[in-house]
Amino acid sequence: MAKHIKQIAIYGKGGIGKSTTTSNLSAALSKAGYKVMQFGCDPKSDSTNTLRGGKYIPTVLDTLREENVVKAHEVIFEGFNGVYCVESGGPAPGVGCAGRGIITAVQLFKQQKVFEELDLDFVIYDVLGDVVCGGFAVPIREGIAEHVFTVSSSDFMALYAANNLFKGIQKYSNSGGALLGGVIANSVNAPYAREIIDDFVKLTSTKVVEYIPRSVTVTQSELQGKTTIEAFPDSPQAKIYTSLASKIAQHTDSKSPSPMDVKELREWAAKWADLLLSYENGELRVEAHGNI
C-alpha cells in the first residue's frame, strides 16, 4: 500500500507571517529527514522565496499561459535541503480569476499523481490570507489537505480572519474536508498576547500548536533570502521552528472548531480592549491578570 502523505494547509490573515512560518516549517521538516513539498497558493507567488535564495520560480499558471499542457515536474523546483517548491501563481492583479487559478493548479497536481511519484511525506499548502471565493477553499476540500493550521497574532483582525477560516473548516468538516490542527501563534511578544490567543482558542475549541515570538533573526534571514532554519540554524528562533515541525510531524487528530458568531466575537474583543486599556492606565497590573 502507498504510504500516507500528510497534507497540510496553512491559512491566516495576509501579512501575518504565513509564508515565513510555512517555509521555516518546510525547512525544519526536511532537516528532520522528511520529504517535503511546499505549494504556494497565492497569486503573488512568493511563498517559497526564502527556500530558494530569494528567487522567484516560474509558476504553474505562468507555464499554463504559455503551453496548453503543463507537466507537473516542469513547475517543481528544489529548494533548501531538497524541499520541493511549487507556486500556483495567478493572473495579474485586477484581471482574470485567481480563485479558478488555484483550483486549476491544485487539480493539475492531483491528477498527475506527482506526490506519490516523489515519495513525499508532507505537502504543505501556503494559502492566500483572505478566503475570498470558492477557489481559495480548494486546499481544504475533501481529497486535498487533511489538516489546517492557522497562523495568527493576537491582533483582533488576525483573530477575526482565523475565526472566519474556522467557519469555512466547520462547513467542510461535515463532508470529509480538512479539520483544524490548531493555531500557530505568531509575533507573541507582548505579555498579554499569549493570553489573548489562549482565550481565543479556548472559546473556539482548538489549541495553540506553538508560540512564535517576533524576532529580528527572522528579518535578518529573510533579507538574505533564506529561512531562519538555513541562515541561523542554531538560533533560539530556529529551535522554535524545529519544535513546531516536530509537533506537526507528530500531529494526527484534527478537530472541527467552534467559531464565534460576529456578535460574540465583537463582545469578546471589546472585553479584551477594556482589559488592555486598564493595563495601560495602570488600573490592572499585567502580572495580575492570570486568572482572567
Binding site: 480563485g99 470558492g134 476540500r141 475533501e142 467542510y172 463532508s175 474536508g177
Partner: peptide, 11 residues
C-alpha cells in the same frame, strides 16, 4: 469558475 464544491453537495 465560481468554485462551487459540487462534490460536497452531491455527497
Amino acid at each position: 469558475i465560481v468554485g462551487d464544491d459540487v462534490q460536497e453537495v452531491v455527497k
